[in-house]
Amino acid sequence: MIWQFDLFILVLLVITALVALKVRDLLSAAMIFSIYSLLMCLLWAEMGAVDVAFTEAAVGAGLSTVFLIATILRTTRRTTD
């Protein structure tokens, strides 16, 4: 585990988490949440948990983004918070 790389990705994770919750457009929030999942997958691959990393890449970044986009397209895209 390289601590510089670790710290860099962790800071990016906090930033993407905050932006995903702050942005007003729900479709943007879904895409930024997908970036968050992909960064998390990178962190796990770096920690030596390759099985968890590719499950997260397929299921977390892929499938849950599809679920979110499907829900947003069937309901509404705008929000007040």
Partner: peptide
């Protein structure tokens, strides 16, 4: 207040806990 935002928050909560557990195996 928005439900989709609430569930994005729930996923962030879950992945943070999973990250903690995975980091114990390093």
């Amino acid at each position: 207040r928005n439900y989709v935002k609430k569930f994005i928050g729930m996923s962030i909560f879950q992945t943070a806990i999973i990250l903690f557990y995975v980091s114990t195996g390093v």
